[in-house]
Protein backbone atom coordinates (compact mmCIF):
# COMPACT_ATOMS: atom_id res chain seq x y z
CA UNK A 1 0.00 0.00 0.00
CA UNK A 2 2.64 2.45 1.07
CA UNK A 3 4.92 1.30 -1.72
CA UNK A 4 2.17 1.74 -4.31
CA UNK A 5 1.51 5.23 -3.13
CA UNK A 6 5.17 6.16 -3.31
CA UNK A 7 5.43 4.75 -6.81
CA UNK A 8 2.43 6.73 -7.93
CA UNK A 9 3.82 9.90 -6.40
CA UNK A 10 7.12 9.37 -8.11
CA UNK A 11 5.51 8.88 -11.50
CA UNK A 12 3.37 11.96 -11.19
CA UNK A 13 6.31 14.01 -10.05
CA UNK A 14 8.15 13.00 -13.19
CA UNK A 15 5.19 13.98 -15.37
CA UNK A 16 4.86 17.28 -13.55
CA UNK A 17 8.52 18.02 -13.93
CA UNK A 18 8.16 18.44 -17.66
CA UNK A 19 5.79 21.43 -17.79
CA UNK A 20 7.31 23.00 -14.70
CA UNK A 21 10.77 22.84 -16.16
CA UNK A 22 9.83 25.40 -18.79
CA UNK A 23 8.69 27.87 -16.14
CA UNK A 24 10.95 29.90 -13.92
CA UNK A 25 10.67 27.40 -11.09
CA UNK A 26 13.81 25.32 -11.18
CA UNK A 27 13.18 22.66 -8.58
CA UNK A 28 10.28 20.76 -7.06
CA UNK A 29 9.67 19.90 -3.45
CA UNK A 30 9.10 16.16 -3.84
CA UNK A 31 9.33 15.43 -0.14
CA UNK A 32 5.60 15.74 0.21
CA UNK A 33 3.50 12.68 -0.42
CA UNK A 34 0.81 15.06 -1.68
CA UNK A 35 2.56 16.04 -4.88
CA UNK A 36 0.27 13.92 -7.02
CA UNK A 37 -2.89 15.47 -5.62
CA UNK A 38 -2.02 19.11 -5.06
CA UNK A 39 1.09 19.81 -7.09
CA UNK A 40 4.52 20.81 -5.94
CA UNK A 41 4.97 24.05 -4.11
CA UNK A 42 8.18 25.72 -3.29
CA UNK A 43 8.18 27.86 -0.21
CA UNK A 44 10.68 30.24 1.23
CA UNK A 45 11.14 30.69 4.96
CA UNK A 46 12.00 34.17 6.13
CA UNK A 47 13.65 34.66 9.50
CA UNK A 48 11.87 36.99 11.94
CA UNK A 49 12.72 40.61 11.31
CA UNK A 50 11.56 44.19 11.12
CA UNK A 51 9.18 45.68 8.54
CA UNK A 52 8.28 49.32 7.94
CA UNK A 53 4.51 49.17 7.86
CA UNK A 54 1.59 51.56 7.66
CA UNK A 55 -1.65 49.90 8.80
CA UNK A 56 -4.17 49.25 6.03
CA UNK A 57 -7.56 50.93 6.22
CA UNK A 58 -9.17 54.36 6.35
CA UNK A 59 -8.03 56.54 9.19
CA UNK A 60 -8.92 59.93 10.50
CA UNK A 61 -7.38 62.32 12.94
CA UNK A 62 -9.67 64.81 14.67
CA UNK A 63 -12.41 64.01 12.17
CA UNK A 64 -10.27 64.59 9.07
CA UNK A 65 -8.84 61.94 6.74
CA UNK A 66 -5.30 61.09 7.78
CA UNK A 67 -2.54 58.63 7.02
CA UNK A 68 -1.95 55.91 9.56
CA UNK A 69 1.53 56.34 11.02
CA UNK A 70 4.41 54.46 9.43
CA UNK A 71 5.79 52.13 12.09
CA UNK A 72 8.61 49.66 12.24
CA UNK A 73 7.03 46.38 13.25
CA UNK A 74 8.69 43.08 13.96
CA UNK A 75 7.53 39.70 12.81
CA UNK A 76 8.29 37.53 15.81
CA UNK A 77 8.07 34.15 14.05
CA UNK A 78 9.63 32.78 10.92
CA UNK A 79 7.34 33.17 7.90
CA UNK A 80 6.99 30.33 5.41
CA UNK A 81 5.36 31.58 2.21
CA UNK A 82 4.88 30.24 -1.30
CA UNK A 83 7.65 31.31 -3.60
CA UNK A 84 5.23 31.99 -6.43
CA UNK A 85 1.52 32.61 -6.86
CA UNK A 86 -0.81 29.60 -7.02
CA UNK A 87 -1.12 28.53 -10.66
CA UNK A 88 -4.26 28.00 -12.68
CA UNK A 89 -3.50 24.28 -12.91
CA UNK A 90 -3.15 24.00 -9.13
CA UNK A 91 -6.42 25.79 -8.54
CA UNK A 92 -8.10 23.52 -11.08
CA UNK A 93 -7.22 20.47 -8.96
CA UNK A 94 -9.23 21.96 -6.13
CA UNK A 95 -12.09 22.56 -8.55
CA UNK A 96 -11.86 18.96 -9.77
CA UNK A 97 -11.95 17.78 -6.17
CA UNK A 98 -15.21 19.69 -5.72
CA UNK A 99 -13.73 21.96 -3.08
CA UNK A 100 -13.27 25.22 -5.02
CA UNK A 101 -15.71 27.15 -7.22
CA UNK A 102 -15.20 26.70 -10.95
CA UNK A 103 -13.89 29.83 -12.72
CA UNK A 104 -15.48 30.78 -16.01
CA UNK A 105 -13.16 30.86 -18.98
CA UNK A 106 -10.09 29.67 -17.07
CA UNK A 107 -7.56 27.55 -18.89
CA UNK A 108 -5.74 25.44 -16.28
CA UNK A 109 -2.18 26.26 -17.32
CA UNK A 110 0.60 25.24 -14.97
CA UNK A 111 2.92 28.08 -15.93
CA UNK A 112 0.42 30.91 -15.33
CA UNK A 113 -0.96 32.21 -12.04
CA UNK A 114 -4.65 31.66 -11.38
CA UNK A 115 -6.46 34.99 -11.80
CA UNK A 116 -10.04 36.09 -11.46
CA UNK A 117 -10.32 34.58 -7.99
CA UNK A 118 -12.21 36.12 -5.10
CA UNK A 119 -11.08 36.06 -1.48
CA UNK A 120 -13.65 33.33 -0.92
CA UNK A 121 -12.15 31.23 -3.72
CA UNK A 122 -8.66 31.70 -2.30
CA UNK A 123 -9.86 30.85 1.19
CA UNK A 124 -11.58 27.69 -0.09
CA UNK A 125 -8.37 26.71 -1.83
CA UNK A 126 -6.31 27.20 1.34
CA UNK A 127 -8.75 25.04 3.31
CA UNK A 128 -8.67 22.30 0.69
CA UNK A 129 -4.91 22.36 0.38
CA UNK A 130 -4.53 22.17 4.16
CA UNK A 131 -6.85 19.20 4.32
CA UNK A 132 -5.09 17.39 1.51
CA UNK A 133 -1.60 17.88 2.90
CA UNK A 134 -2.10 17.97 6.62
CA UNK A 135 -0.39 21.33 6.53
CA UNK A 136 -1.87 24.57 7.73
CA UNK A 137 -2.11 26.89 4.74
CA UNK A 138 -3.78 30.30 4.85
CA UNK A 139 -3.65 33.68 3.16
CA UNK A 140 -0.98 36.00 4.57
CA UNK A 141 -1.96 38.92 6.73
CA UNK A 142 -1.22 42.30 5.21
CA UNK A 143 1.77 42.76 7.54
CA UNK A 144 3.17 39.38 6.49
CA UNK A 145 2.69 40.24 2.84
CA UNK A 146 4.50 43.55 3.29
CA UNK A 147 7.33 41.74 5.07
CA UNK A 148 7.69 39.12 2.35
CA UNK A 149 7.35 41.69 -0.46
CA UNK A 150 10.38 43.53 0.97
CA UNK A 151 11.52 46.30 -1.34
CA UNK A 152 8.52 45.66 -3.60
CA UNK A 153 6.08 46.81 -0.93
CA UNK A 154 4.92 50.30 -1.87
CA UNK A 155 4.02 52.70 0.89
CA UNK A 156 1.65 55.21 -0.67
CA UNK A 157 0.92 57.86 1.91
CA UNK A 158 -0.96 60.83 0.56
CA UNK A 159 0.15 64.32 1.45
CA UNK A 160 -1.64 65.53 4.56
CA UNK A 161 -3.82 68.33 3.31
CA UNK A 162 -5.99 71.24 4.29
CA UNK A 163 -8.34 69.96 6.94
CA UNK A 164 -11.29 72.14 5.93
CA UNK A 165 -11.24 71.29 2.22
CA UNK A 166 -11.94 67.59 1.62
CA UNK A 167 -11.42 67.99 -2.12
CA UNK A 168 -7.66 68.48 -1.71
CA UNK A 169 -7.15 64.91 -0.64
CA UNK A 170 -9.36 63.55 -3.40
CA UNK A 171 -7.48 65.53 -5.99
CA UNK A 172 -4.14 64.42 -4.55
CA UNK A 173 -5.26 60.80 -4.63
CA UNK A 174 -6.57 61.17 -8.18
CA UNK A 175 -3.28 62.75 -9.23
CA UNK A 176 -1.30 59.89 -7.66
CA UNK A 177 -3.50 57.29 -9.32
CA UNK A 178 -3.28 59.01 -12.68
CA UNK A 179 0.51 58.82 -12.52
CA UNK A 180 0.50 55.07 -12.01
CA UNK A 181 1.82 53.03 -14.85
CA UNK A 182 -1.01 50.90 -16.14
CA UNK A 183 0.13 47.29 -16.25
CA UNK A 184 -0.60 44.83 -19.02
CA UNK A 185 -3.93 43.17 -18.35
CA UNK A 186 -3.10 39.72 -19.73
CA UNK A 187 -1.63 37.41 -17.04
CA UNK A 188 1.99 36.60 -17.77
CA UNK A 189 3.92 33.33 -17.26
CA UNK A 190 5.28 32.67 -13.78
CA UNK A 191 8.58 34.47 -13.37
CA UNK A 192 7.88 37.33 -15.80
CA UNK A 193 8.14 39.97 -13.08
CA UNK A 194 11.37 38.70 -11.53
CA UNK A 195 12.47 37.71 -8.05
CA UNK A 196 12.70 39.93 -4.98
CA UNK A 197 15.46 39.89 -2.37
CA UNK A 198 13.68 37.15 -0.40
CA UNK A 199 13.41 34.85 -3.39
CA UNK A 200 9.70 35.50 -4.01
CA UNK A 201 8.65 35.51 -7.66
CA UNK A 202 6.33 38.05 -9.34
CA UNK A 203 5.64 40.23 -6.31
CA UNK A 204 3.79 43.40 -7.39
CA UNK A 205 3.58 42.29 -11.03
CA UNK A 206 0.23 42.43 -12.83
CA UNK A 207 -1.49 39.98 -10.47
CA UNK A 208 -2.55 41.48 -7.14
CA UNK A 209 -2.73 39.15 -4.14
CA UNK A 210 -5.48 38.69 -1.59
CA UNK A 211 -4.50 38.99 2.04
CA UNK A 212 -6.42 37.78 5.06
CA UNK A 213 -6.57 41.24 6.62
CA UNK A 214 -9.97 42.85 6.99
CA UNK A 215 -10.79 46.45 6.15
CA UNK A 216 -10.35 48.64 9.19
CA UNK A 217 -11.73 52.10 9.87
CA UNK A 218 -9.89 53.77 12.65
CA UNK A 219 -8.60 56.87 14.28
CA UNK A 220 -5.09 58.12 14.80
CA UNK A 221 -4.90 59.27 18.42
CA UNK A 222 -2.99 62.40 19.37
CA UNK A 223 -0.11 60.26 20.64
CA UNK A 224 0.06 58.55 17.23
CA UNK A 225 -1.55 55.28 18.26
CA UNK A 226 -4.01 53.71 15.88
CA UNK A 227 -7.38 52.62 17.19
CA UNK A 228 -9.80 50.59 15.11
CA UNK A 229 -13.40 51.76 15.34
CA UNK A 230 -14.78 49.28 12.85
CA UNK A 231 -13.54 46.08 11.28
CA UNK A 232 -15.30 44.89 8.12
CA UNK A 233 -14.26 41.40 7.07
CA UNK A 234 -16.55 41.53 4.04
CA UNK A 235 -13.79 43.67 2.52
CA UNK A 236 -10.21 42.43 2.45
CA UNK A 237 -6.88 44.11 1.87
CA UNK A 238 -5.39 43.36 -1.54
CA UNK A 239 -1.70 43.95 -2.18
CA UNK A 240 0.41 44.38 -5.28
CA UNK A 241 1.75 47.34 -7.22
CA UNK A 242 -0.54 49.35 -4.95
CA UNK A 243 -2.70 48.53 -1.96
CA UNK A 244 -6.45 48.40 -2.28
CA UNK A 245 -9.55 47.08 -0.54
CA UNK A 246 -11.93 44.73 -2.29
CA UNK A 247 -15.18 43.03 -1.35
CA UNK A 248 -14.53 39.36 -0.73
CA UNK A 249 -16.72 37.92 -3.51
CA UNK A 250 -15.27 40.10 -6.29
CA UNK A 251 -13.19 38.21 -8.83
CA UNK A 252 -12.47 41.04 -11.24
CA UNK A 253 -11.73 44.44 -9.77
CA UNK A 254 -11.58 46.12 -13.14
CA UNK A 255 -13.99 48.99 -13.60
CA UNK A 256 -15.02 51.07 -16.53
CA UNK A 257 -13.82 54.07 -14.60
CA UNK A 258 -16.91 55.43 -12.89
CA UNK A 259 -15.39 54.81 -9.51
CA UNK A 260 -12.41 57.07 -9.48
CA UNK A 261 -9.18 55.11 -9.18
CA UNK A 262 -6.96 52.52 -10.79
CA UNK A 263 -8.10 48.98 -10.07
CA UNK A 264 -5.84 45.91 -9.89
CA UNK A 265 -5.37 44.30 -13.30
CA UNK A 266 -5.87 40.77 -11.93
CA UNK A 267 -6.67 39.11 -8.61
CA UNK A 268 -4.66 36.05 -7.53
CA UNK A 269 -2.95 34.81 -4.36
CA UNK A 270 -0.17 32.95 -2.67
CA UNK A 271 -0.39 31.23 0.71
CA UNK A 272 1.65 31.05 3.87
CA UNK A 273 2.14 27.84 5.79
CA UNK A 274 2.08 27.76 9.57
CA UNK A 275 4.78 25.38 10.72
CA UNK A 276 4.40 24.71 14.43
CA UNK A 277 5.30 21.85 16.76
CA UNK A 278 2.19 19.91 15.75
CA UNK A 279 3.08 19.90 12.07
CA UNK A 280 4.51 16.33 11.99
CA UNK A 281 1.41 15.00 13.76
CA UNK A 282 -0.97 16.81 11.38
CA UNK A 283 0.90 15.49 8.38
CA UNK A 284 0.82 11.96 9.78
CA UNK A 285 -2.91 12.16 10.50
CA UNK A 286 -3.63 13.44 7.01
CA UNK A 287 -1.60 10.62 5.54
CA UNK A 288 -3.23 8.03 7.80
CA UNK A 289 -6.66 9.37 6.91
CA UNK A 290 -6.05 8.68 3.24
CA UNK A 291 -4.20 5.39 3.69
Amino acid sequence: MLLALKLKAGLTAAVLAAPLAVSAIPSIDTSSDAVDRVGAFETVTLAPGPVAYRPAGDFSRAGQPANAPLRTMRLDRALTIMKRQVTAAEYQRCVDAGACPRLAGMSPRDDHPVVGVSWRDADAYAAWLSQETGERYRLPTDEEWAFAAGSRFKDEALPETDAVDPSRRWLARYEAESQRQKSVREPQPIGTFGVNEHGLVDVAGNVWEWTDSCFVRGTVEPAGDVRATLVNCGVRVVEGAHRTYITDFIRDARTGGCAVGTPPSNLGFRLVRDDDAWRPLRRFLAWAGRA
Binding site: T255, G256, G257, C258, A259
Partner: peptide, 10 residues
Protein backbone atom coordinates in the same frame (compact mmCIF):
# COMPACT_ATOMS: atom_id res chain seq x y z
CA UNK B 1 -22.95 51.34 -19.83
CA UNK B 2 -20.98 53.82 -17.71
CA UNK B 3 -19.15 51.27 -15.59
CA UNK B 4 -19.16 48.01 -17.49
CA UNK B 5 -19.00 49.30 -21.05
CA UNK B 6 -16.85 52.39 -20.58
CA UNK B 7 -18.98 55.55 -20.87
CA UNK B 8 -17.26 57.52 -18.12
CA UNK B 9 -15.25 60.74 -18.24
CA UNK B 10 -13.81 62.78 -15.38
Amino acid sequence: EAVELGATAH
